[in-house]
């Protein structure tokens, strides 16, 4: 565990805390994409299948449980909570995510480290996470007046994988036989997807103005 990996995990944890706070404190999920939350639920389920079979560390298991529970809580709130569900932008959050799920699954069938169910699903989760934020970014472009907490959520979520890239570079240099080409490429693609958002987020922060993404 190096500082980049820990910082990345903390950014990821903070992004989820910010989102939970935003929805719970404002009793509203306006501007939040349910599609992205559901894609992340698929990512975590497919990635953490070994949650009960292989124990790595208390930290590892705890974080996996937090990610799973928080994502399902958000989905539950957005779908069933009597006050929160009415604030969901159903008409705006229309990204057809089957066009993300299917290609990622097919790619995982073809491009993986081992052709076994667990490994293909794990690889699928790596590819799917790279594009899981797209429905949320599309929704932000359609939502005028993005509230700060939602903007912060996306920024923290994007910065977590960017920090993971530094972690991979560090491990590549210090651990002789550490190779994760598929994860590295997917993580770089994931971070590139955020670059556009990062630019507008940092500019709005510098100019101290409301964040807005061009349509």
């Amino acid at each position: 565990m190096n500082i980049f990996r820990l910082a990345g995990d903390m950014m990821h944890l903070f992004s989820i805390i910010v989102l939970l706070l935003k929805i719970n404190a404002t009793r509203s999920c306006r501007g939040v994409s349910l599609k992205t939350q559901e894609l992340y639920a698929i990512v975590f389920v497919c990635r953490y299948l070994d949650l009960f079979t292989s124990f790595i560390s208390l930290y590892n298991t705890t974080m996996k449980l937090i990610f799973l529970l928080s994502t399902f809580t958000i989905i539950y709130w957005m779908r069933f909570h009597k006050v929160i569900r009415v604030t969901y932008d159903r008409e705006q959050d229309t990204f057809r995510y089957q066009f993300l799920i299917l290609p990622c699954f097919l790619l995982a069938l073809v491009l993986n480290n081992e052709f076994s169910a667990m490994e293909v699903l794990w690889t699928f989760s790596i590819y799917l996470e790279a594009v899981a934020i797209l429905p949320q970014l599309v929704l932000l472009q359609r939502t005028n007046n993005i509230d700060n907490l939602t903007g912060n959520y996306v920024f923290l979520l994007g910065s977590y994988r960017a920090l993971y890239i530094l972690n991979w570079i560090y491990r590549f240099m210090t651990e002789p036989n550490y190779r994760q080409y598929l994860v590295w490429i997917s993580g770089i693609v994931q971070t590139i997807v955020y670059i556009d958002f990062f630019y507008y987020y940092i500019r709005s922060w510098r100019n101290n103005e409301k964040l807005s993404l061009p349509a």
């Binding site: 990996r5 995990d9 990821h12 990635r47 292989s54 790595i56 590892n60 990610f67 480290n113 036989n177």
Partner: peptide, 10 residues
């Protein structure tokens, strides 16, 4: 061990 090591990230 290699396998476990490979999946130590979240």
């Amino acid at each position: 061990a290699e396998e476990k090591e490979a999946k130590d990230e979240l």
